[in-house]
Design a protein around this nucleic acid. Sequence first.
DNA 1: CTCCAATATGCCTCGGCGGTTATATGCACG
DNA 2: CGTGCATATAACCGCCGAGGCATATTGGAG
Lengths: 115, 115
Amino acid sequence: MSDDTSLWSALADPHRRSIVALLLERPRSVGEIVEECGLSQPSTSKHLKVLREAGLVRVRQDAQRRVYALDPAPIAALDAWLAPYRKLWNRSLDALGRRLDETSDTSTEDPSPKD
Amino acid sequence: MSDDTSLWSALADPHRRSIVALLLERPRSVGEIVEECGLSQPSTSKHLKVLREAGLVRVRQDAQRRVYALDPAPIAALDAWLAPYRKLWNRSLDALGRRLDETSDTSTEDPSPKD
DNA sequence: CTCCAATATGCCTCGGCGGTTATATGCACG
DNA sequence: CGTGCATATAACCGCCGAGGCATATTGGAG
């Protein structure tokens, strides 16, 4: 059930955004995630449950370990939500940039999210 | 300044997302917003305060009315946050068989969304 | 079968959020 | 100056979410 609200509220938590950022690098087991973001194991498991129910992550069972990985679909949904607004800020950036420069590409320059 | 968390949690509420969507069409006074999304006036004012403090909206005072309008900057921040993940799901779409001739730049290449 | 390691889940507490009602503030107008 | 409209704020309350601790569950090793 990945309705928009569960997706947004899943990402509203900074710890969960950290987890998502971790999983962007590579899939990880719960233990790794616990160690990386310094939360307790039960708390981490709960966050992972929220992310799971929001459709943001998937689990693969490997012996006793459970390896979590990002599911790109909800990210795409976010992107779709964002699309109309992107027009808006492109427009206003354009209005600004008209006086500044011709740099129309102010987008993806950030290789690593730290959040 | 609006940290990421206040931005995300501001958008985590469906009513606030409705308000933002309303303001995407055009700036509106509080009364209009109240009428459109069916909330009470105090509740609406609170939501607007949250959006204001997240930097998502700005106010212009017009006599007794206060006209709210979208500020595109935080939307751009969201877009920036999304960028690394967008690469991910582009990749997976590719894995599904889509042949995207992307060179190395999967950034905003002006998708020209239709109205 | 038993024990252990890895993870999930239940209960409890607490702080914050969203809603409502009542009230304050600010501005225009007679 | 007082009245009325538009909006913000205060005070209060119910609820949900996040964290901690203890415990259940599951799979593997011996």
